[in-house]
Design a protein around this nucleic acid. Structure first.
Lengths: 198, 198
DNA sequence: AATAAATTCGAACCGTGGTTCAAAACGAAA
DNA sequence: TTTCGTTTTGAACCACGGTTCGAATTTATT
């Protein structure tokens, strides 16, 4: 907590004025991160023009970006075990709800014959796992932006489910809309991401 | 350390007779786990009869099984950050070597036109990430064995790379050989896994 | 059986990090 | 300017977990 306070330019006593405990702070950050993910899932859900493959594409892309582009994204699915049960149950519930949204998209794809999946839960966990693990290795100063990593992940992971990958085209990407979805307010970052892509 | 000692049926002083520090114990477990993964990669490498897709399939399957079927598999790629630099560098080197082996298989698949990959490193990290994240959610008492999860992951993740998924068939699985690869000495477990599949 | 080596134990040390709290400082309102 | 509410501080408490070590016990060797 002293380190966190120092990083924020304050002292530990000050930090305790705002958060009763380290657990509360951690849970707060996790909830903030989960909130962004739920926002993502909600925006994707509203995209009725997209079929399951397109929606899943944006879920993967968005997830990777949310986790890696800004603090406290990386806390969304990590360190949950560190919390006492009272806090943890809440985060776990939110997480499970979010996962259910992914699974619903996968299920829809299966129903419509777009996806071929043996077990929807396991298939979803494979994709979420890949996206979550980016927290462990992604570095903002690396070769690729979170956006680029997310996009490649989305292509790869959606293709893993497709019944007919040969005919598949990833959805069109509208950067302004993505910024709204990701709640990004830094247009410099979005243009940098575009420039890096071209 | 007291808990670990208690779990082993000894006291903490006893445990310190064998390991100079908690870091040494952790590194020891991690190296053991990495050793199994390197064994897996080596066995897969010897399978010259398999093309890149088949080899990748067994890498994914084997990785999930190694991490989840027996202690200390789950420590192979986790808690590395917890170690001081001296220890950590060694584990990281072994991990990087192992990852390079995955990447080599992916690279071969690309050369032979089996795989279509924008960035081999990112593609590999997606698959490894999915497999590593199983540590977070897989439960031995769950609905599926590590073997089953690993197999479904392998199908899904390999398909995500395939140039022509429509014609693809996963490799034939020889359980006895897998037991040798995974260094499993429990034939009951392997038969249970087979029975569950059928 | 005696001796040496190996293993185990129990109690204690101690640094780290979570937490507390009275007092000081700051900002807002009257 | 004074008063009140809010924020910040610095020092200290204390539990926890990593670690130590002399003594006791067990095992192996002669």
């Amino acid at each position: 907590m002293r380190e966190v306070a120092a990083a924020c330019g304050m002292t530990v006593g000050n930090l305790y004025y705002y958060f009763a405990s380290k657990d509360e702070l951690l849970a707060f950050c996790q909830e903030a991160a989960m909130g962004r993910l739920h926002h993502l899932a909600h925006c994707v859900e509203l995209r009725n023009d997209l079929d399951a493959d397109g929606q899943l594409f944006f879920l993967v892309l968005g997830h990777v970006v949310c986790l890696n582009e800004a603090f406290p994204g990386s806390l969304a699915h990590t360190q949950i075990e560190d919390l006492p049960a009272a806090w943890r149950d809440r985060i776990v519930s939110a997480r499970d709800l979010y996962e259910a949204q992914w699974r619903a998209v996968v299920g829809r794809g299966v129903e419509r014959g777009l996806f071929e999946v043996a077990d929807e839960k396991v298939a979803t966990m494979a994709m979420l796992g890949a996206a979550n693990w980016t927290v462990k290795w992604y570095r903002p100063d690396g070769e690729r932006s979170a956006y680029e990593v997310g996009e490649q992940f989305a292509r790869q992971l959606v293709r893993g489910l497709l019944t007919d990958a040969a005919q598949w085209q990833p959805p069109t990407i509208d950067v302004d809309e993505l910024n709204r979805i990701f709640d990004r307010d830094d247009s410099v970052a979005s243009h940098a991401a575009l420039a890096k892509r071209n």
